[in-house]
Structures are given as C-alpha cells and as structure tokens.
Write a protein that binds this DNA or RNA. Sequence first.
DNA 1: ACCGCCGGGTGCC
DNA 2: ACCGCCGGGTGCC
Length: 978
Amino acid sequence: MSWMFKRDPVWKYLQTVQYGAHGNVSRLSYPTFFPRFEFQDIIPPDDFLTSDEELDSVLFGTLRGHVVGLRYYTGVVNNNEMVALQREPDNPYDKNAIKVNNVNGNQVGHVKKDLAAVLAYIMDNKLAQVEGVVPFGANNAFTMPLHMAFWGREENRKVVLDQLKKHGFKLIPPPKTLGFSLESNWGSGRAGPSYSMPVHAAVQMTTEQLKTEFDKLFEDLKEDDKTHEMEPAEAIETLLLPHQKQALAWMVSRENSEDLPPFWEQRNDLYYNTITNFSEKDRPENVHGGILADDMGLGKTLTAIAVILTNFHDGTPLPVERIKKNQLKKECNVNNDSVKLEGNTSEKADGLIKEGSRCSKESSISDIKEKNKYPMSEFSSSRPKRRKTADKYIESSDSEEFETTELPQKTKGKLKNAKSETKSRGKGLSAVEESKKTDLGEKPRTTLIICPLSVLSNWIDQFGQHIKSEVHLNFYVYYGPDRIRDPALLSKQDIVLTTYNILTHDYGTKGDSPLHSIRWLRVILDEGHAIRNPNAQQTKAVLDLEAERRWVLTGTPIQNSLKDLWSLLSFLKLKPFLDREWWLRTIQRPVTLGDEGGLRRLQSLIKNITLRRTKTSKVKGKPVLELPERKVFIQHITLSDEERKIYQSVKNEGRATIGRYFNEGTVLAHYADVLGLLLRLRQICCHTHLLTSAVSSSGPTGNDTPEELRKTLIRKMKLILSSGSDEECAVCLDSLTVPVITHCAHVFCKPCICQVIQNEQPNAKCPLCRNNIDGNNLLECPPEELASNTEKNTNMEWTSSSKINALMHALIDLRTKNPNIKSLVVSQFTTFLSLIETPLKASGFVFTRLDGSMAQKKRVESIQCFQNTAAGSPTIMLLSLKAGGVGLNLSAASRVFLMDPAWNPAAEDQCFDRCHRLGQKQEVIITKFIVKDSVEENMLKIQNTKRELAAGAFGTKKPNANDMKQAKINEIKTLIDL
DNA sequence: ACCGCCGGGTGCC
DNA sequence: ACCGCCGGGTGCC
C-alpha cells in the first residue's frame, strides 16, 4: 500500500462520533422521551427520527496526541486524513485500548496508552464523541501525530475537561467564531505541506438561507446530463413523456457510467477522496444507480420498466426484433416443451402451456392474481388446493421446470416455464450473444424489484400495459406461500418481483433466503423510504442484497431528514458513506449546524445521484404534467340539536377532566385519555353511533394486578388502532399486521417484534424506548372484541346523521347533473363507511369499498371494478383514508368527499392524489365536510400550522423534546378550546 | 557508586 | 526510532 504526500486542504473537518467501523447502531434508535403513541397522531412519525442526539453536540475543544504501533497494521493514511477512533475493550494488553482506523476501516494503530486511559472513560460513558484527523499521516513508520476534537452535549463539557485534566491533558479551546468548521492550521512540521488559515471564517447560514439553499438542491434540471432524452427500447409499447425520456437517459447513463463516484478523483495512480483525504489504489466503483425521487404520478414505474428493457444487457436493449422474427419458431419451441411436459407432469403444466398460447389478458391477470392473493405464509394458512398443485408441479419436474408468471398482455399473455423461455430466446440470439450466454452462468442477468405489497399488483399491471405483447420476459412474482425458493431458477429470470415483507421474512429464516444468495443485475427499491429505519430487520434484509446496479424509487424523498438520505446512500453503497461516521462528520452535522461546506457537499452529492421532478417542474418550458385543476371546498355542517346535545355533554365532561390534568401538569401522562376524548368528539361529528364503539376511558388505574395492566394495555392498543391514525409498525414501517402491545405500551406487528426479541435475546429491548421486553409479555388484540364492536353497530337500528345527510344530498345532486361522475367517499372510520352503505343502497347507488381490513385479492377486485368505466360499474368508492399505498390509482374518480379531517394534512393530500394523478382527465373537486364549532374546525387550524411547519422544516435543528412537549400541549389546548 | 554517564538493545495496545 | 526508555557496564583528570 502507498499513500499520498500531497492533498488539498479542502475540508478538514474535525467532527465525529466515536462509532466504530460499524457503529453503535443502537444509538440510531428512536429517541425515548415519550411513548410513541402519544405523538403519532399529531406529529408525523418522521419527526421521531430527526431530533438526533448528535445534533445537540457542541465542540469542547481539540487535543493533540499520538497514534502508535503503526508497524503492526496495514492501514495507511494520508496527511490530513480523517481517522476513526474505536474502542477495543477486549484488548488483552489494555482494556482501555483505542484503535485508530482509516476511512476504509483498516487499522492504522492505537492511541497511545496514557491518552487512551482517559479517552476510554470518556468514550465508554458517552461523555463526548472524539474524532480524529491525522495531520501528517504519510510516511510514518512507528508513530504519527493525531488531532482530536471532542464533541458532546453542553452538560458534559465540565466532566470531560475535568477528566482530561486529571490525566494531565488540556483541551485547546475551540475558536470563538464557530466550532464546527475547524480549519486545521496545525501544519508546518516536517511530514507535509503547511496550510494557511482559510481566507473566510466559517459562515453560519440562517435558517432562511439554508432553506433556500436546500430548495435549490433539486432545481437543477437544466444540467445537461439530466435534460438529455433517450428513446426507450422497442419493447416498450407506451410512448414516454419527455420527462420520462430524460429520466431514462439519465438512469441508463448512470448504470453504464465509468465515472468515479462523487468526491473521488484520480491523482497519479491513486484514487483520492476529497472529503476525507483518503486514497487507495483500487478504483472505487461508482454507484451504477441512484435515486429517482420524482413526485408521485410522474411515472416512476414506467420509467423503471423502460430502464430494465432498454439497458437490458451490457448496455443494450432487449432485442425485440429478433424475437419478432422468431415468433413462429418460438411458438414451436413452446409446443415442444409442452409435449415434453405433458409426458412427465401434471395437468397443471399442460394447462400452463395451453393457456399460454392463447389466453386473454383477463385470464392472464386472474392467474397472476391467483398467485398474489395470499399474504405471507407465516401470517395466513395457505390455500390447500394451490399448494398441492404447485408441489406436484415441482416434484414432477426434476429441477429445470419453473413456473414463470407471464405478464398480462393487452392481446395475449403467456404462462410458461423458464426453461422453454431460455431456449427460445437462445435460439433468437446472435452467435455473440449466444457465446456470452454460456459464460453468462456467472454474470447476473436478473432485476429484482422490491415493493410494498400495496403496489405489487400495480407493478404487474404496468408491466402488462407498457410492454409489447410479443415481447417475452421471464418474470416471476416471488410472493405467496408457494413461491419457489430456488436461487438457480430465480437467477434465470429477467425480472423477479417481491415485497419487503417477503424479503424480510426470507432473510429472517436463516440460511433459507434465495434472494440473498443471488447476485442481481439490478435491484430496484420501490418506495425506498421503507428502509429509513436503520434498525429495522427490513432495512438489514435490503442492505444485504448483492447487486451491480441499485435504484431507489421514492415519491417522498429526502424531504424528511438527512437521516433518511443516509439510509438510501448505504443501500447505494456509496463510498465512504457506508459507515455512518463519515456521513455524520462530513455532511449531516455540518449541514445541520449551518455550515456552507457541508451544504455544498450535500448539494453535489444529491445532484450526482438523484433525479427529482415535481408536478410543477418544467421540461422545455412546459409543465411535466398537465393535470386538470384540483379544487378543495370546505362544506360546513351544522349538527342537529340532538347531535349537538350529545357533543356538548361529551365535551363538557372531557374538558373538566382534561382541565384538571392541565392544572396538575399531567396532560401528557394522560395523553391516551386526551386522545380518547378527541376521538369521541370526532366520532360524534360523523355519527353518534360511532361513539358506542369508542373505547370508554376508564378512570385512573392503579393497574397493579397483571389483569388490570393487561386491560389497560389492551385498551391503549385499541385506542391507537381505532383512533384513525395511520399507526405503523416501527420495525417494518408498514401497517400493523397482527398488532401486539408491549408492556411499555408500544405497538408492533407481532412477527416483527418477535423477530427483534429473537435477534437480541436474551436482553431484547423495545425498539422505541429501549425498555426490556419479553416475548411472553406481548399482548395481542383480542379479535373477538374488535368484531363485537362492529357487530354492535350493525345491530343498531340505522339512523342518519347531519354529515350523512349532507353527503347524500351532494351525491344525489351530482348524479342528477352527471350520472357518470365517480366519487370517492373517504373516512378514517370504517364503521362510518359501513353506516354510509345503508343510504347508498337505499338510493340505488352502485358502490364499492376499499379499506385496510380487506384481503389483497378483494382490494384488487374492488379497485379494478371501480376503475372500470363500463355502464353499471360502481360510481362510488367508500375508501378508508389510509387504505392502499401511495401507488393506489383511483383516477376514475373526479370527486372526493372527505367525511372527516385528518390530523395530518399530508395524509389527506396523499388521498386526494389517488385520483388527482396521471390519467385524470377531469377537474377534481374535493369536498371536506367540517362540523361547525367542533373539534374538526380546530383540527383545520392545526393542519395549517403543520403545513407551515413542514414547509420550513428542513435543515435546521429539530425541536427538542421540550419543544415538542410544549407544541403538543398547545395543540391540545387548541383542540378542546381550553 | 544506594550515584551519573555511556552506549547497546529495543520498541503498540 | 535522527526518538525515549530500559538496564548493564562502568567509574579522577
């Protein structure tokens, strides 16, 4: 190994945390100040992730020391290169030992032991984060100087200084200007060039400036490499819009690019990282991928499909022409195989081929739906019929035969096996291609797409829609209990589609994850923000995938926090950010502290690897998308006297209680009760019958007996589940499946939390609050109780409500004016939707329904039924606010009736966008029903505050626990007019 | 000389 | 390490 003598003093940051090469991951966990359920309703969960402990750090000062024992280790460093200090408590010679590693994680040496003695104490007790830079790293045989900066919370400053003093060390105080951007003017020795102080002192930008700067990050469409357009492969049937062609060109160029990754340059025969001053002989791989962060509805799925087919192999598209030419021949092959299959296998295989040769789009879709309708095997019993067939199929076919899902095609679709497909394509290829194929045994050829379950069917549909019918792709939907777990066969596919849950589940079952034993050509994460929680098993499962090209598609990018961006970067495997320390030192902290250099780096990073267009972005002066207008109307509702009476009595009673909490200063401790009251009020605004299903708030509980505790926890869980918030599991970040509550009152999916407990045993901790948890202490929601609640309602004699009257009036009016217009009727309360069914039926409306409780198969049916524009198709969809994912397309509707306001305006907007999206031809009119003089009006106020907050939320220091507490208390006051 | 000084051996934690 | 430190050899000027 060798190293450089010269380097630019570009960014000499002396800031870090003492994470080791792979970090102290538990510090990434959510802050623990409050139980999660207290906030989830009003402050979006993202905020939990952003008030980071590191951001509270201040610079205590710097210190000089020495790295010793260089000759025993291979790690080398340049002058002025950043190094990581890592505790090594198990060192047999000194329990205080501290390793010094270079950016690559190779050990350079140790901190000299007298200094290590005090540093170990500071690091072990997390009194400060110690970060190192080696001013003269090059050409040292035995020792080298080390500069350290100590960062920590203000309250720890004194103890750190005292400790150091006790051992005879004294920190050099930080320059008064600002701590974060420390110019290292410690040069002038013999080992390297000297550095002058920077001409300009570090500048701290104002919040305003920061925000403006951040906005600029994405406004760089004018760059050449992003305005270039590219025609998709011939195999793509759909015409791409200009912005999609731009994305295609950019993505293909990124995949094929041989450029160095951002912040790397070649210097002589070495590759040099300009941020950390690290250099090495091996050329760092560029990310053959990136982040496509276009707004929802700009066609990310189509763009991704175009990339797959256009940059199919070695930078060339899927050869459509040959396939066309050989169409006849191919049919022959298929038939041959069919004969062969018939000989040794079941009627199923026979059916596959027969069906394949002349099946309609419908039958093809239905077959895919067949495959996709089961949830993960763990969560539901498999369907015996199907399983039997598949088993038989696998058994009878030695090993080669493989069930491949053909895409739904407009004209025809096929189901056949991979073997026949490989053969037929082989014959269609040129000699060159053919020869490649033989040694292609090792060469990855398969694209893996991972998406949330909610958009799985969307991907299948879109492949069907956008690819010409004569094109044949080996496409396998790796989903359902019968999924074939054979890496050899999966790696012969062109495309494998699966969900995060399947991936995570397979990953959890050790040694049995075919997806992890394959080197993929390309991995595409749809809705990539799903991996924002670095602790989640799901994230680990994703990060462990091997791939040459990596893409993240996300409609809700980086907006939330820099942390999210780091998750994505670690998936993209962009050096040196795989290790969070370098990310924190060089970008996250500088940016959050308002440092210009940090922002510059962030900018060039984002410019390099992401493409983002919003609905209002322009291509050649024209908006990317010309969507019809969207109008939001608020219709005020006056409650009937009877409703008002009930409302007031509940409100007065609740206000008295909560007023008491305010006086006692225990509002937040009784947050569940506050939520309960608000929930009841919101329900009354919709329909008084909803009230009966509300969980009655029992008084203060001594909850000493286990049974009492159990009841309290179950009550809390039910409240959380029924309060209309989009409670998600903090482990998988997906909707809760089989919700369970821990003794520390946090709700997770049962499978997720069980996994966590298993992994961390014997000392498993709650991912949210780090309290100890025990698999035996998880409480499930008794399903019969949930069921009885809904039954109670259905047994009640139906009556209308002011809101229902208003809705029906509007719907009937609309039908009179234009019977073809379709509407979404949206509520957070599914029981309310049920109540609405009665008058809809009575008035002769054809309607369908979509809510979270429906099985995947029923959802898909419901969506297709509604999207169908044929006469007699439903004109109304009853939609629960959070049903379906971002990808849900309900563009057949042009009216939305929002029956009750949501806490989070973003949730409402997302819901509106399900019909106000690509494909919408009509003006979209949204009506929000808001009860006058009620909690609903107050919710609107809070929504506005939130919108303002979200607009200016980036980059600055996040509110701390106290700020949040105060904000919360203010919200409660607003909500119940206190 | 229970010192100083010399010079060889030696070297992370 | 062109150092520091150790410990043995040595001892007026």
